[in-house]
Design a protein around this nucleic acid. Structure first.
Lengths: 393, 393
DNA sequence: GAAGTTTGTATATCGACTAAACAAAGATTA
DNA sequence: TAATCTTTGTTTAGTCGATATACAAACTTC
């Protein structure tokens, strides 16, 4: 065992520079003096680090701010337009791409729908989209700093999609494929993990430290942010909570087990149940959008949503027992049905989860709606860029 | 938001000293030169840090080692006898206390059994035990460096036992109570968390990075080590997996929910089922130990164990889906029945968990048997002592 | 307009690590 | 057995980054 990295002055500088930079990002605009007070670093240390950040164009100075009884401060601002990031949500039957600045503000957006495309054609759609987004990026110091792609399946550290059953992908080396084409750093992430991160950074979970993002779409996955950082498991397969057993003797699932949660509480479950109610086969006639339109007038459909909501509650109760999180966020497709789902979920938890678990717990729906994953994965990319930028300079 | 701690030379030194110290602990005996090679630190840096550790009596020099073609090295050894730690497993009807050296070697052990004692009397037993253990500690540089107590319930960061249903405790400020009496640092931890840590440090999970310890006793709790560190949730209530629903319409549990895992797979479930089989009430006649003796000759009882094992498999499958761990360890009371439980558990998982999850996964029983918790909590205490020791000197 | 405040920079010093030289102690070889 | 090579560990000089202090600039208050 040779040890990874030792502690030296270089690490100290990098750490302090990162602290200063993060503080500017979170408190823009701010003066050098205030940074020194807040961080406990010496004024001259802050000055020297700030001058480096200025040289790198990551921040800039604006005119003098308000005096607080003495010389007026020079305000420092995060230069969020010094680079742009691409975030792509690769869904089972759609592709959503966004271009964001370094603060995660969306400056451009593209969307494509399709059905059951083979891998090669999805790749083509993906390339078209990325090329368009790159073209649309305003000119800036660093240009497009990276591409992030969220995928509904397990991803390992090398950016290989190991297993994506709903796409029918196995072992696709997506990172190297995209990186080779564009020569820009690429990050591949699980869709639920990215969604969790998106909600933590920009959405409903901003001050959550232990957050579980329930991605309820065709199947159910969970993104886990524990102790403030993403948890991905041993091989990137964590959060496969759709295949958690909630009924030992329940019907068989495609995964080979019985009574899996997603058989009761996913969009797919909803559609199958709706087809049963309407005594037809599942078809394009029956979709989440159609059901949402019909619900206000059809008590049977209303009841369906209630049932799905209750079962969502069952699984969320299990999540709470397991993680004791401060925030559970329900996102992806079923977020659109929040008005019907919220009540049964909340009721189930109130009646089944011990009171001490419910203290300081918030269960809510995604604030970013369909954009959680794309935003999350774009933010991953930004994060990675800024870290590298701080180290190598 | 004022920032916690900035980076300065002091932090660097502390970090490097810790690296050197840890390397000595894990590779004792070792020379200065080898430490420098392995860590990448300069020889002189190592020398200076080592001389401090020598002054603090945390390590010592032995006679010269084998030459590798030049001057013979001076070997450095971890002085594991420079202090002693107390670890106590406070169970529902027993108290197990151990005295360990800084390496976790047990040098003294005490055990008491009781039934349904009120808090005051348990406290008395606890004090008696601690006093005895302190008396039995050999004299050393640092003496008894701390007391760790593992409790079957939720514990917050202030060492308060918030909720321990099986003990019928609520809001017991155990840390301050014990600290006041002995004036030694006290650490209170959840029993399953401590067990997880014990197994990671000394037992079956030595090189596991994502480890779930299933504490199967009267109830079921789980200790979670994720990304190499303990996860405790928002208020210390994580790992209450005994109350995960595995049968939506199952019987009611004391927690208020239905079909909780521990209704099917705990020691308590076993005893209740055994009483049903034998058509008597649950009594002191029926105990895990008694059933283990009867099993080889009674196929009904053998079958009971098989049933419990299968249900353990159900919950463990859920754990695997959720965490994608590299190791699941089953411990506490039911570990004693491993010969009967192992097969049904393994079979259930083989048949219900997707193959990709089973790669690089090990499911096994506790190696430390009944000592996981006590050893874990003693190790917490040592860890905390060594950290403080390195900082303040 | 004088005195006090606040901001940001410049200078001197400290503390920790590294590199290089060196001394001590052994192995190797002629 | 002596000369040379190796390895270990210490000493010395130098570098880098942070801090403390002094100071200049710009503004407020009285």
């Amino acid at each position: 065992m040779t040890i990874q990295h030792t502690w030296n002055q270089h690490v100290v500088k990098k750490g302090n520079k990162s602290i200063v930079f993060q503080y500017i990002i979170n408190h823009t605009p701010i003066s050098r003096a205030d940074i020194a007070k807040a961080t406990g670093l010496n004024k001259s240390t802050v000055s020297s680090l700030v001058s480096e950040l200025l040289d790198e164009n990551l921040i800039y100075e604006s005119g003098p701010g308000e005096s607080s009884g003495g010389r007026r401060p020079v305000m420092l601002l995060f230069n969020e337009l010094s680079g742009f990031s691409i975030g792509i949500d690769l869904g089972v039957n759609y592709l959503l791409g966004i271009l964001t600045d370094l603060s995660g503000n969306i400056v451009n957006e593209e969307k494509v729908h399709f059905t059951e495309l083979p891998y090669e054609q999805i790749q083509e759609e993906l390339f078209t989209m990325i090329t368009t987004l790159i073209k649309n990026a305003p000119s800036s110091t660093y240009g497009v700093i990276g591409i992030g792609i969220g995928v509904p399946g397990a991803v390992n550290k090398e950016g290989e999609v190991l297993h994506a059953p709903n796409l029918m992908w196995e072992n696709v080396k997506l990172k190297s494929i995209v990186e080779e084409k564009y020569s820009i750093p690429v990050i591949i992430a699980n869709e639920a993990n990215a969604g969790a991160y998106g909600e933590k950074k920009f959405g409903a979970g901003k001050d959550a430290n232990n957050l579980v993002y329930v991605s309820a779409g065709t199947g159910i996955g969970a993104g886990l942010i524990l102790n403030g950082q993403l948890y991905q498991g041993n091989n990137g397969f964590s959060g496969e909570m759709g295949h958690m057993t909630i009924e030992v003797d329940g019907p068989q699932c495609t995964c080979g087990s019985n009574g899996c949660w997603e058989l009761y509480a996913s969009e797919k479950a909803l559609l199958i149940k709706a087809a049963l109610v309407q005594k037809t086969a599942v078809s394009s006639e029956i979709s989440l959008e159609a059901l949402l339109k019909l619900a206000p007038e059809d008590p049977h459909i209303l009841n369906l949503f209630k049932e799905i909501g209750t079962y969502l509650g069952v699984g969320i109760n299990n999540i709470i027992q397991t993680f004791n999180p401060d925030h559970v966020i329900i996102g992806n497709r079923l977020e659109a049905a929040k008005h019907y789902l919220n009540n049964p979920i909340v009721t189930y938890i109130k009646e089944h989860t011990q009171p001490f678990h419910q203290n300081e717990l918030e269960v809510s729906f995604s604030q970013l709606s369909t954009h959680s994953t794309a935003l999350g994965v774009a933010a991953f990319t930004v994060e990675s860029f800024l870290q590298i930028e701080l180290v190598t300079t």
